[in-house]
Design a binder for these strands. Structure first.
Lengths: 128, 128
DNA sequence: GACACCGTATTAGGCAATATAGTACACTGC
DNA sequence: GCAGTGTACTATATTGCCTAATACGGTGTC
């Protein structure tokens, strides 16, 4: 499914969270898709089931997945996690902080606009 | 100088790093300004001198400040920390990741452009 | 009901990072 | 010399992460 970087400063469960989040956002995992079970994924990654469980709990808290006891865990449809105000705020604050730092380092406004342009094109976004 | 949030998930030294970084980027602390001494700031924040020292070491590593033994620590002129490739890359990756997440959550391209617009205006930036 | 699969909870221990405390050393300017 | 600066070191307590092992309850199949 994905690889772990044991040399990373990030903890394992954080890496699991980030990787799955990316798969969902990129559309590799779609709404209502079933995720690997805790035991299955823990075996595949050769980590402890508790570690995977912690990652799933975090992903559920963030609204990306939901679980049905006895059945498994599934990808939430995006409509359910729409604009959780607090989270959107945090993301925007992060972006603001990072862009300010890039500007301080000498990056130009044009270069930043270019970065966004590439992102939008990559997603085949419209103009709204 | 600033306040610490002891309830935060962030460690103390990280909060010190972030706060000082913001002061530098916002222009509250200017190039060649002298920072409070390790002992002075640790007393003001009622934390251990070692914790402040760790924060200063990190800020020096990131290129925001420099130290002269026996004299103190000072703000680096921005020209010295220009576009450290690795760091700029990390920042851009962060921005990419956060914007993708915002788009997934339903934020529109227009709203994101607006966010940037506000940032640029706030800084009184030109058009390049 | 038996069984296999799911998520979940609990307890325990090891390890690393964080923060504290205290002490010591080298450098600079007066 | 002295006061102020950064820096280094040891030791300790606390916290978070990760592992290990075990147990419990829900669901679907037979």
């Amino acid at each position: 499914m994905f690889q772990l970087d044991l040399k990373s400063r990030k903890s394992i469960y954080e890496q699991v969270v980030d990787n799955i989040k990316e798969l969902v956002i990129a559309g590799v995992l779609n709404s209502e898709d079933k995720l690997p079970s805790v035991r299955e994924l823990s075996k595949a990654l050769t980590v402890n089931p508790n570690t995977v469980q912690k990652a799933y709990r975090e992903l559920e808290y963030q609204g990306f997945i939901y679980t049905v006891s006895g059945l498994g865990t599934f990808v939430t449809s995006p409509i359910h996690s729409v604009m959780d105000g607090k989270k959107a705020h945090e993301l925007q604050d992060n972006i603001r902080r990072d862009i300010k730092e890039l500007l301080y380092m000498g990056m130009t406004r044009a270069q930043i606009n270019e970065l966004l342009q590439e992102l939008f094109e990559e997603r085949g976004e419209g103009n709204d």
